[in-house]
Design a protein around this nucleic acid. Sequence first.
DNA 1: TTGTGTGAATCCCTTCACAGCG
DNA 2: CGCTGTGAAGGGATTCACACAA
Lengths: 208, 208
Amino acid sequence: MSKKISESAVRRLSLYLRTLEELDRAGHEAVSSEQLAARSATTAAQVRKDLSVFGSFGKRGFGYTVEELGRALRGILGLTQPWRVALIGAGRIGSALFEYTGFARRGFQIVAVFDSDPAKIGRKWGDSIIHDVAKLERVVSDKDIQIAILAVPVEAVQGVMDQASRAGVRGVLNFAPVRLKVPEGVTVKDVNLVIDLESLTFALSQGF
Amino acid sequence: MSKKISESAVRRLSLYLRTLEELDRAGHEAVSSEQLAARSATTAAQVRKDLSVFGSFGKRGFGYTVEELGRALRGILGLTQPWRVALIGAGRIGSALFEYTGFARRGFQIVAVFDSDPAKIGRKWGDSIIHDVAKLERVVSDKDIQIAILAVPVEAVQGVMDQASRAGVRGVLNFAPVRLKVPEGVTVKDVNLVIDLESLTFALSQGF
DNA sequence: TTGTGTGAATCCCTTCACAGCG
DNA sequence: CGCTGTGAAGGGATTCACACAA
């Protein structure tokens, strides 16, 4: 039962959910597609189209119930279950991600941390011990981890990816600047800040 | 003289450049659109279309000269000059970004770091002193900084953004999860890892 | 012959506009 | 009434296919 939905549509759903949560905290009970759009940097028609793919969540002449639509979106985005995440790479990026509270708030629990540096292995980060990356497969399957964040150097990342997918990881957030080869059924999202900066300098250079 | 080019097209140009640099290091002198596409996860036609917007860089029956096309792309992306960058926020994310060597390698120089925490102000990071964010406007204009990376808490980010744009910053990489209001002529790129993770969980939930 | 550059065709996403429900 | 849900129209972006240059 897989819906064909564009990447950008999914990102918009995410934004709607964030907006709804803000509205909820602010005490709003209802919201129109118009209002939701204005606060999510899109159009009313786009909001309605995006939602219509998954069902009818509004009442005509009224709008959407904030609480109800929020619950629906969490369901659509797969956020009703907490997700068990492995953080692979305990360097600068790994450390920043580990400390970041925004993940936990959304139900992403970092339940294991790995590194290959003997000086780091065995150290404690919060409640977690940094594991030897050699034990990746065992720990990932023991702890039933579904998502891995790869914050390792580019030379190491494909090897780590292979282990992770063998251990049953199905989703990956990859910080290394390479296109990973993955088996069918594994989804990768690349994060590449240099590309973001370059799209910025492109815009700046075109400005004159 | 501004070309209307989609965000995703620019990201592809960035990828082509990276691929070309790899080919260059591997000693390749020429490359076809076919080869470039295969290594950049797109199609030959797409490569040719993307490039055709900016000129004719290839030779028929031959392909593209790696060195030449690389130079052209660096020009298009605005990477022939080094860019002076301010890092605002010396917390976990800021620290990870400061240490990241990938920026410097592409000509992005972090020439000033700011924070509002008195315990951090005055400390040295590498060759830089952490400045009081209150001095943002002066330092940014003195050092002729064009780009700011905003790694500050969500409550503070709009205020910092306002100061930065008053000081002449024209491009911003924003890590806070809010849509910034900016004056005409300022470009913002948002980085939001929670959204990336949510597009991952969406894909995983759809999988069954 | 090979592989680019590019109009034409296609596909997909966004916007329009309105019927119809609450 | 007011605002959703949705077919139809419109606009971009991708892919096709081929004339043509090296």
